[in-house]
């Protein structure tokens, strides 16, 4: 089943997808995709992200593949939902998307073995982990000013139940900018697989229900401009639509966005 969190008529609802592509809200109402505001499918709390977790992307950025997962954390401020708007800072010269498979943890665990790891997964969604490379510095790299900006991590639309994804390590990822494919890869090429990441993280800290792991992105990153429609898509998981707006547009609509970024 596919689950979403949406706002309909000013109320936050849980929703599921109906057979004909509508949403059924938790109060029984049936609504269309365009009638709702999409929120991240779970409320983000502890969110891990992986850098350089695809062999080809590590090569593209001229780094050696890491011997230990390169993990960083993201705050709740950065997340927005499906069909949201991400602002490009006026001074930015290099802002790229990153299509990533997001793993949603289903129950808490410590020292989880690789062979048990999938028992701890509630489901999957799609994330677009934008980076503004202009702000890269070599302290706790990738630093928060690159990776944890307001509106810079669209996630959704759906949380797809783990049991509905037969092999999460064999899914095609694609990014479309204004309808044209600019990034294509497969989760097969992850350096550290989902079970390895769960085992690694839980070896030194407790993973909790609704923790999210963004598992990294393959090669094919291009600069995105104001007005671009960026769609990150993962086979069987979903198609996440996002639009780039200018900083000026963002500041004008800030109060509207802020209601939903919480």
């Amino acid at each position: 089943m596919k689950h979403a969190r949406v706002v309909f008529q000013d109320v936050i609802h849980q929703a599921i997808e109906t057979n004909d592509g509508h949403l059924k809200l938790d109060n029984g109402q049936i609504v269309s995709e365009e009638e709702v505001v999409w929120l991240p499918p779970v409320q983000p709390r502890t969110v891990f992200a992986l850098g350089l977790n695809y062999a080809d992307h590590a090569k593209e950025l001229a780094f050696q593949a890491p011997t230990e997962p390169l993990v960083f954390l993201k705050g709740p401020n950065t997340f927005i939902g499906h069909r949201g708007q991400t602002y490009r800072p006026a001074e930015a010269t290099n802002m790229h998307y990153e299509c990533e498979l997001a793993v949603i943890i289903g129950r808490s665990g410590t020292n989880i073995k690789q062979e048990d790891a999938y028992d701890y997964v509630a489901g999957y969604t799609v994330a677009n982990d934008y980076a503004i490379r202009d702000y890269l510095e070599n302290y706790y790299r990738p630093n928060l000013k690159v990776k944890n900006r307001d509106t810079c991590t669209p996630i959704g639309p759906w949380l797809v139940d783990a049991k509905d994804i037969k092999d999460p390590m064999n899914l095609t990822l694609r990014t479309y900018v204004n309808g044209k494919v600019t990034q294509e890869g497969t989760t097969k090429d992850m350096i550290f697989s989902i079970p390895q990441l769960i085992a690694y993280l839980s070896s030194f800290m407790t993973l909790n229900k609704n923790d999210i792991i963004l598992t990294g992105t393959p090669e094919g990153l291009v600069d995105t401009k104001v007005g671009d429609e960026v769609i990150t898509e993962i086979e069987g998981v979903g198609r996440l639509v996002n639009t780039i707006i200018s900083e000026k547009q963002f500041l004008r609509t800030e109060s509207e966005n802020a209601i939903f970024s919480q």
Binding site: R45, G75, E137, Y140, N143, K145
Partner: peptide
């Protein structure tokens, strides 16, 4: 190396909820 220059922006990190 590897820093190359002193930090410009505040260097930030997160202490997640399990801590």
């Amino acid at each position: 190396e590897p820093y190359k220059e002193p930090p410009k922006a505040p260097v930030l990190y997160i202490k997640p909820v399990n801590t």
